[in-house]
């Protein structure tokens, strides 16, 4: 546990020591705010579902930027071998990096709170769906981070990791679009988007929570296996 925490803190420090975290946060916040308010005053309904509605697409393109360096950089600079020989388990390394990224995302999401609070000042807001929306956003973000960490572990090239993460993330997102699920409803079960819709609406379903947790576990598990495989290279 303490090892995981140590890795996490190290990663967070490295994020905030570079401009990455701040750039990532401010751009994401700016876009979330812009996209939300673009329509808000045209159809002023005291509801922030539209804010959460923008998150799947924003996360698809933003979070890979955050995760691409996690393993690729270690590989490129050659610190990975040192890291793997340290007295800590591979899963601790993975979880440390995962939670560091997630922590950064949560901090960014906290900074979106002025939006629901402003809406609430205009008309009392039902905070149930807002809580659901944040829970969904965290789970959705965790899924993208898990995909990103995995692809970062299979290549030294950050750009390749970035592109692969976007591709796979987009795939798992867009298979949930109505156009696709109306023809192939099976895909809705595996879409990050479909699952997110119901949580952001204020319905917390154990199916959806389980989906996100197993999705994260799947990609972190795959990451674990790629690290195991490195021993045999």
């Amino acid at each position: 546990m303490s090892n995981t925490f140590a890795v996490m803190m190290k990663e967070i420090r490295s994020y905030i020591n570079s401009p990455i975290a701040f750039l990532f946060s401010s751009m994401l916040l700016g876009l979330i705010g812009y996209l939300f308010y673009m329509d808000f005053f045209v159809r002023p309904v005291a509801d922030v579902r539209a804010m959460f509605g923008t998150m799947p697409i924003l996360f698809t393109f933003f979070l890979p930027g955050l995760t691409m360096r996690l393993w690729s950089e270690e590989k490129k600079v050659g610190t990975l071998e040192t890291l793997l020989t340290m007295p800590m388990k591979n899963y601790q390394l993975i979880l440390g990096k995962f939670f560091a990224c997630l922590g950064l995302l949560v901090a960014t999401l906290v900074l979106t709170l002025p939006i629901p609070l402003t809406v609430n000042s205009l008309h009392p807001l039902d905070f149930g769906p807002v809580i659901g929306g944040y829970l969904g956003a965290i789970l959705l973000g965790a899924s993208f981070i898990a995909i990103g960490i995995f692809f970062s572990s299979i290549t030294e090239n950050q750009f390749v990791a970035f592109i692969l993460t976007i591709f796979v993330g987009a795939l798992f997102t867009f298979i949930g679009l109505d156009v696709i699920t109306s023809k192939l409803p099976f895909f809705a079960d595996f879409s990050l988007l479909s699952r997110f819709g119901s949580i952001a609406q204020g319905i917390v379903d154990s199916k959806d929570i389980l989906f996100y947790l197993t999705f994260v576990a799947l990609f972190l598990g795959l990451n674990f296996m790629t690290l195991e495989l490195r021993r045999w290279r």
Binding site: D126, F127, G128, P129, I131, G132, F186, D189, F190, G202, I203, V204, D205, S206, K207, L210, F211, T214, F215, A217, L218
Partner: peptide, 22 residues
């Protein structure tokens, strides 16, 4: 396991909590 859990088992055993005020 991921596929089975999510497409076979979870849809049959689940609970939903409605967070909306009303």
């Amino acid at each position: 396991i991921f596929v089975c859990l999510n497409s076979l088992i979870a849809p049959k055993h689940f609970t939903r909590v409605d967070l909306t005020r009303d």
